[in-house]
Design a protein around this nucleic acid. Structure first.
Lengths: 326, 326
DNA sequence: ATGAAAGCGCTAACAA
DNA sequence: TTGTTAGCGCTTTCAT
């Protein structure tokens, strides 16, 4: 089986076949090269990457751990990661955590046992988690930041500035009573987004009013429930949403109450997921270069895998895309 | 390194450690079992799945080949596949083809070299493609059907009936001039959907009018462009869309032309992707149990991998979900 | 109840 | 220019 069979058929050694297949054939005569290649072709021989990996100690595959591929934000991230990985000759093992720390831990184990060359992870919690503290493979933290003692790559945006800019934008549009719907997850991302909201208010001497903030999670459902709460409690005329999914849910709730967007209430989202521009109304949002962040995550990871000197922290820029919801 | 080190530390042979780690420890004394397990724990030893795979000839990983994870239909499919694979102890290698036959071929090669235990694929073309004709790993065709000589599993719906039902639904709603926007890809899925549209018309003695059919691809952009063409060419009062993405694009175009949905034009989609119920207006659509099809694909595949007797063809039911766009 | 040893398919150092 | 061979980390048969 395997390379052995090809070698026998060609009347050469396995070493020769191996060299040819791996392009280390400077010292191989063209005639044997041709002969071997022909046989490989004819026999439809496919090298066993498992055996190769065992020997050379790398698998040319990386692990991607995200909360949920069905979420448009993560699927765009995943697309970026996959495209880039493919271009660089790596395969991708996909893992969905559903925001469960247990699943995350389990996947980290599995990926390590499968000897992936590196791991890209949008981590669940900020809790001083030791799950990848003693992971041998290089790791890059994508989108969500986490304190850790081991060196890790980081791809992120300035989340606080995002919501700060969003609220400021609403203020400039004339809103005077701006609500906030976001996640209450205890991680730096959610905290930063809340802080951005608060600091923009503070800077304009507007008191923080918890009647018009709703913190749950980054889902359409949370957006829907949140918007209902806000309009019940107060006369909001603007809502800053922690992400676009929330904005979509909020819009649905408002429409059902016959509240006009943007006349009565202006809405701004965050992320600029693909559907936002096609939504009705098209959603004004703080764009985050999701796909590119996915691309860059693997560039960074591969730099780490191949032990190149690099900047471990890469911060991307956001920008407001004005559409029809404001 | 590896099991060797653990064996030495515990003062036993590698065989013993291996047996314990794999639960083949009926003939191992409880005391050594405990001792070994403690050392494994303490040392944070993670078995090398690569070495194991080489020996036992399976990898507990399956390949998933889809056109594009960013497409909500495929991301839901992928979620189902991943969830189910995980539950069954398999990992998932994700591959995006972007509808390129070349990429599909390349991925098929890569997956085979990585010795995946099986492959789930939403194939690009219907062309008598030999790319997986001589693939040794079990294969299940998900969503898209393809003629092939080798045995393969198939998970599908009755695509012709879907559009037939959609058009009939529109007819019953009083539409008299129903357009069709879909894909012109030469595969059985697209052909079936077109045939469903045509046969519903025929059954009601309505002539097929190519001025109100637009065939491009399953994208939002196609829906947008298609709707523009239809309203320009004729007074359509109903549009049957090849999928929900197309419906979303069509709605955007119609809204921009100030055409009321559903009063002036009724729109029905196909798939019932997650966003459809949250869209504005919520989209009436022919629901396809996407997630469950993903789940079932891996069940079927694992049955094939483990060589169980099974029904290789599994057809799912669709059903119309009426919302506000009709 | 435990261990020795062969071998999975490959690569690479070294020899020829 | 080509071949021999050890060994990657594991499982498993067969002894003991």
């Amino acid at each position: 089986m395997g390379i052995n069979r090809i070698a026998r058929m060609a009347g050469v050694s396995t070493a020769t076949v191996s060299k040819i297949l791996n392009g280390k054939d400077q010292a191989i005569s063209e005639s044997t090269r041709q002969r071997v290649l022909e046989i490989v072709e004819r026999e439809g021989y496919i090298p066993n990457a498992i055996a190769k990996s065992l020997k050379i100690n790398n698998t040319k595959t990386i692990g991607l751990i995200i909360p949920d591929v069905m979420n448009l934000f993560f699927s765009e991230l995943a697309k970026g990661v996959e495209d880039s990985a493919d271009k660089r000759g790596y395969s991708l093992i996909l893992c969905n955590t559903d925001n469960s720390t247990d699943k995350e831990k389990k996947y980290l184990q599995v990926l390590q046992s499968k000897r992936v060359d590196g791991i890209i992870i949008t981590a669940v919690e900020n809790s001083s988690d030791t799950s990848f503290e003693n992971c041998i493979a290089p790791i890059v933290l994508l989108d969500r930041d986490i304190k850790t003692n081991r060196p890790v790559g980081r791809i992120k945006i300035d989340n606080e500035k995002c919501t700060y800019d969003a609220v400021t934008f609403l203020l400039n549009k004339g809103c005077t009573n701006i609500g906030f719907i976001s996640s209450d997850t205890v991680n730096s991302l959610s905290r930063s987004r809340l802080e951005g909201y608060m600091s923009a208010l503070k800077e304009n001497d507007i008191p923080y009013d918890e009647k018009i903030v709703y913190l749950k999670d980054y889902s359409v459902e949370a957006g829907y429930a949140g918007a209902l709460k806000l309009i019940e409690n107060s006369e909001v005329d603007g809502i800053c949403c922690g992400n676009d999914l929330i904005a979509i849910g909020a819009i649905k709730a408002l429409k059902e109450k016959n509240i006009d967007i943007p006349k009565d209430v202006k809405i701004i989202g965050l992320d600029d997921i693909f559907i936002s521009s096609y939504f009705n109304p098209p959603i004004t949002t703080v764009k985050q270069p999701i796909y590119d962040m996915g691309l860059e995550a693997v560039n960074l990871l591969i730099d780490m895998i191949e032990k190149r000197e690099t900047d471990l922290l890469r911060v991307f820029n956001h920008k407001i895309i004005e559409r029809m919801s404001t």
